[in-house]
């Protein structure tokens, strides 16, 4: 527990009578990909919203390293090094690809208040933004309007924006969603290399990708973690098969 980059302790979130998240403790250690899987409605999105700071937990806490960030909002957690990507791309669609990553670089610099300097002329911001684009192979699309990008390229841009923050931990909400087989493969390869830079808490429906990538898997069902362990542990777990994979054990 002690070396965890990101962790939750006994998180609880109820919506009316529904316990969306019920006493969930997960952690993310350096160099790993920790996948959270579970059927629809299991509470994955609620969990990620609480980790990112978009939703206040009713009880329990969220930690970044040994710092309790439960009371900090999304932007404060981002400044502490939490890099989040969204399930449905949340990008400035009217802006160019470059402008979207420049926004990330701007967030990293912490200096959005320069009212009279040209943002495109800032060499430091630009270098950081271009470096991120090159890593996701979007450098050719620098001046393309984001709304003109294909779905797959938008997912890559999502990751690029997170990269500009130099995060200590990534939280990714279904980065493979809507990608074809080919796109999925590219993204899998990319995330595989990324874990050395910063560990990834991965929420994903694509089981092939999860089994290929994850160092650890936690299974969330009805707001509770019913199993947690290595890929092999999870594959073998009878309870998981019953509850999630829908097989008769």
């Amino acid at each position: 527990m002690s070396d965890a980059v990101l962790s939750t302790k006994n998180l609880v979130k109820t919506f009316g009578a529904l316990k969306a998240i019920d006493d969930v403790s997960v952690d993310l250690r350096p160099g790993e990909i920790h996948a959270i899987i579970g059927p629809n409605g299991a509470g994955k999105s609620t969990l990620i919203a609480q980790i990112a700071g978009a939703l206040r937990p009713d009880a329990g806490s969220v930690w970044m390293g040994d710092r309790d960030v439960t009371r900090l909002d999304t932007s404060a957690r981002a400044r502490l090094g939490l890099g989040r990507t969204f399930q449905i791309s949340a990008l400035a669609m009217e802006d160019t690809v470059l402008e979207n990553v420049l926004l990330g670089a701007l967030g990293h610099s912490g200096k959005p208040w320069r009212l009279f300097r040209k943002v495109h002329a800032d060499a430091e911001l630009r270098a950081r933004a271009m470096a991120a684009l090159e890593r996701v192979q979007l450098a050719d699309a620098t001046h393309t309007r984001t709304s003109a990008l294909s779905h797959g390229l938008r997912r890559q841009l999502e990751v690029a924006v997170a990269l500009t923050l130099n995060p200590r931990a990534f939280v990714m909400d279904e980065p493979m969603a809507g990608l074809g087989a080919e796109g999925s493969k590219v993204m899998t390869g990319f995330l595989d290399g990324l874990r050395q830079e910063a560990p990834i808490l991965l929420i994903e429906h694509d089981m092939d990708a999860v089994f290929a990538l994850a160092d650890r898997i936690s299974v969330l069902v009805y707001g509770q973690v019913i199993a947690s362990g290595t890929v092999d542990d999870i594959r073998r777990s009878a309870e998981v098969r019953r509850a999630y994979l829908g097989e008769d054990a």
Partner: peptide
């Protein structure tokens, strides 16, 4: 053209995104 304008423009289009980059 300024950094502020870029961020403000993005805040109109995708406020969640602006928060997740720490602004």
């Amino acid at each position: 053209l300024s950094p502020f304008g870029l961020a403000l423009n993005a805040a109109r289009q995708a406020p969640q995104r602006v928060e997740t980059v720490g602004l």
